[in-house]
Design a binder for these strands. Structure first.
Length: 359
DNA sequence: CAGATTTGACCGTC
DNA sequence: GACGGTCAAATCTG
């Protein structure tokens, strides 16, 4: 433990020193007609160093936090299902049953849903709708909620009928901050998307208010690598007090490069300490800016404090995920380095610094 | 024309 | 009876 702290301390210092060194070099080179690529590379190295340093600090911070904050889930009794390793599947079966009853018995309201994930998605512009989450959703209702200023929208999986997928979500614009959308996910995807099947990317733009022709869009897409990239380029995810490797959390795990295995944070170990590679790979190799990625054109995926997200057992009705999507950084030239890429995709020895690699 | 969205009505829960 | 979730006909969109 102590060695670990020392290692982190040294790494922190090294990163700061490295960042400063590169900044100095860049300063010198700004006087010479260096190529823009070289300068970009150096800028990214600087940012990478600071990013690593900050991550270390954040890691320490979250570690201390986790010792003082009681996860919400611990306050609720743990259901027997949650102890057998598949709490959601069982609940979801119940949800399916409910829905099937609805199908047979018209408009019968299902029982209080058990499978829930709640996230917050913010769009700073205030015009853009909730973010692409990798699944195809079809809106089936909208309701004015008494206690809310804005109506709540109801979505269900597009493949509900074709693949018997009963995942649903509710989107509620926050009263306090209209740029924030509270999204509640219910049920687990049993469609091919939920099984992480890679399908040809097919962009579908849907609008909450189709007539408005503004950016109040909700984008839905198959969780392909491309959509993952676009999505990953824009999200800032902040999550506290979350756990359990089984979750209806909507992002298709494999295509996002993180897994929901136990004791695994958002940062795969392979790249945990090599955000620079991640950022470079993301920025230079994985940036197929597609037409539908207008909102997603910036390599700025950031996930903070996700440690423990999947590590704490959750009760079915007490899952709170806080995700903030900051679209204001769409044009930011500064890539964030948090986003994990599957370490298996990148050879650590890959010669990124090969002259002309980025040209 | 197929599929998605809108919206009023229906229904269960509290 | 109020509220919220869902249905389904009408409408819209590509």
């Amino acid at each position: 433990m102590e060695n670990e702290c020392n290692w982190e301390h040294n790494t922190l210092i090294n990163e700061l020193i490295q960042g400063m060194d590169v900044a100095k070099r860049l300063k010198e080179e700004l006087r010479t007609p260096y190529s823009l690529d070289t300068r970009d590379l150096q800028v990214q190295m600087i940012l990478s160093s600071y990013e690593k340093a900050l991550r270390i600090l954040r890691c320490n911070e979250s570690t201390s936090k986790s010792q003082t904050i009681t996860p919400l889930t611990t306050s609720l009794p743990e259901s027997p299902a949650s102890t057998n390793g598949s709490p959601l599947s069982e609940d979801f079966d119940g949800a399916i049953q409910d829905h099937r009853e609805v199908k047979n018995k018209s408009k019968k309201r299902k029982a209080t849903p058990k499978l829930m994930d709640q996230i917050k998605v913010s769009c700073e512009s205030g015009l853009e709708g909730p973010h692409e989450d990798g699944y195809n959703w079809r809106k089936y209702g909208q309701k004015d909620i008494l206690s809310a200023k804005y109506p709540r929208s109801y979505y269900r999986c597009t493949f509900r009928n074709t693949q018997n997928c009963w995942a649903t979500k509710q989107v509620q614009r926050s009263d306090e901050d209209p740029t924030i959308f509270d999204i509640t996910y219910r049920g687990k995807h049993t469609c091919s998307q939920g099984n992480n099947a890679i399908e040809p990317y097919k962009s579908q733009e849907k609008q909450e208010k189709p007539q408005s022709h503004n950016n109040n869009d909700i984008q839905h897409a198959h969780p392909s690598q491309e959509s993952f990239t676009n999505f990953s380029n824009t999200l800032t995810v902040k999550t506290d007090n979350l756990g359990n490797e089984q979750t209806p959390f909507p992002f298709p795990s494999t295509s996002f490069g993180y897994t929901t295995q136990e004791n695994q944070s958002w940062f795969p170990s392979g790249l945990e300490n090599d955000s620079f590679l991640s950022s470079l790979f993301q920025t230079h190799l994985l940036s197929p800016v597609t037409p539908e990625s207008n909102y997603f054109s910036s390599p700025t995926f950031q996930m903070n404090e996700f440690d423990g997200f999947y590590n704490n057992p959750r009760s079915e009705s007490d899952i709170t995920e806080i995700i903030s999507t900051n679209t204001s950084v769409t044009n930011s030239p500064i890539p964030n380095f948090h986003f994990p890429l599957d370490s298996a995709d990148i050879d650590p020895n890959f010669p990124f610094n090969t002259p002309g690699f980025f040209s």
